[in-house]
Design a protein around this nucleic acid. Structure first.
Lengths: 215, 215
DNA sequence: CCTCCAAACTTTACGGCGTTAAGTTGACAA
DNA sequence: TTGTCAACTTAACGCCGTAAAGTTTGGAGG
């Protein structure tokens, strides 16, 4: 009645149930425990039933990643909206914080979204490609707007957006892998660390300096 | 005669052979193909022989990652030395380029080094922890030196180093996953993209601006 | 030279995995 | 009522990581 493309014959909506089960398994910490067989068990079907709805395991993971990117986008939008951020640099700060918070709140899902095994899937699954691109959009917009107000922009909008994305993405990865932490860097908390490091790239968008870069 | 802790009884130095085989397998593209059994096959021993030298598969991966971090460190040092970079901002540029080039030249090894499955190993294997820390050292030093010359530093040395690391790490990840590319960002090549984005954080270390950040 | 020991390695085995191929069920149209 | 066909099950293959028990072999002590 509601979700799938082909209605509820026997199970109800196995496709949906599998994706939901995968998200639940991811949240309960087990990336390695996320097997097709476990999902099937969780949904109460035989171990090969998923193959009626997904080509292979990667296709299931891709569907899960699509949900992940949707959540990320929602988190970014919510962060911006909650502080009524209209100034582009404030919006960039909100976006940076939202990105890192999402990664810390959903580490396994975040890792899956940017997993090696899904690289090819991005080129084949339009849903996934679009969901991924949509997550990047708010950053692109905020950076573009900020740059348009710079007296002396140091980078193109695309470069600025890439650099900003790279920073928050790298920060997220290092934080969820324990390579970096507020304590290890002498910051009081994560929000502060994100704010300070994001401030670096925000300032760096503008070349208006007193001759610090000599060449 | 040379390497291992306990000489060559039957094989020669199986421990070394396994790590070498793993590096070779990684370079030939297969992360998923990197199985203990494949390594054993490659070394010409039975599938359980590795357990005489490593506790489990993770321990093998940790040993491989140690090599990876050593290579990364060597690449960073070589990049700095090759351009005789003495000015800290030039050194930071060289380090950023070296980091990203390493990731692009050894994508699977790079992913393994920062793999989820090795997080716990960093807390148990001192060799791994030290190798990882050593890779970060040059960045830390260059950023610290650059900050010490800032008239108006915007961040602490630890924060600046974290932000710089995050940028190059995120850039590396996005590039090897195909999320970002010079073409997609309108840059002529990777070196330029790295130089421009690294320039953002380098400039951002200093707060010497004409009142761009209003609060 | 022979004996023996312990380290290095092999054999065998278990359960779990992704995936394929062939068979079964059951809702719905005719 | 009957037939159809998608949804699902059963069975099987070859991989994997890992544990337990057995076998080889270089070298030290007699």
């Amino acid at each position: 009645m509601t979700t799938g493309k082909s209605g509820n014959y026997h199970h109800g909506d196995l496709r949906e149930a599998l994706v939901t089960a995968a998200l639940k398994l991811l949240e309960s910490g087990g990336v390695e425990k996320l097997s097709l067989r476990a999902l099937a068990r969780d949904a109460g079907v035989s171990q090969t039933a998923p193959y009626g709805h997904f080509r292979d395991k990667t296709a299931v993971l891709a569907a899960v990643a699509v949900r992940g990117f949707a959540r990320l986008r929602a988190m970014l939008d919510a962060g911006v909206a909650s502080r009524g951020a209209v100034e582009p640099e404030v919006r960039m700060q909100a976006l940076a914080l939202g990105y890192v918070r999402f990664a810390l709140a959903n580490p396994d899902l975040f890792r899956l979204m940017f997993s090696d095994s899904l690289c090819e899937a991005f080129e084949q699954d339009p849903d996934l490609a679009q969901a991924g691109a949509a997550s990047f959009e708010p950053i692109r917009e905020a950076v573009g707007e900020r740059l348009s107000r710079c007296a002396e922009p140091a980078v193109t909008p695309a470069e600025g957006a890439a650099g900003t994305w790279a920073l928050v993405h790298g920060l997220s990865n290092l934080l969820i892998d324990g390579k970096l932490s507020p304590e290890s860097v002498g910051a009081p908390d994560i929000d502060t660390l994100v704010e300070r490091t994001a401030g670096m790239v925000i300032r760096g968008l503008d070349a208006g300096h007193g001759g610090i870069m000599q060449r």
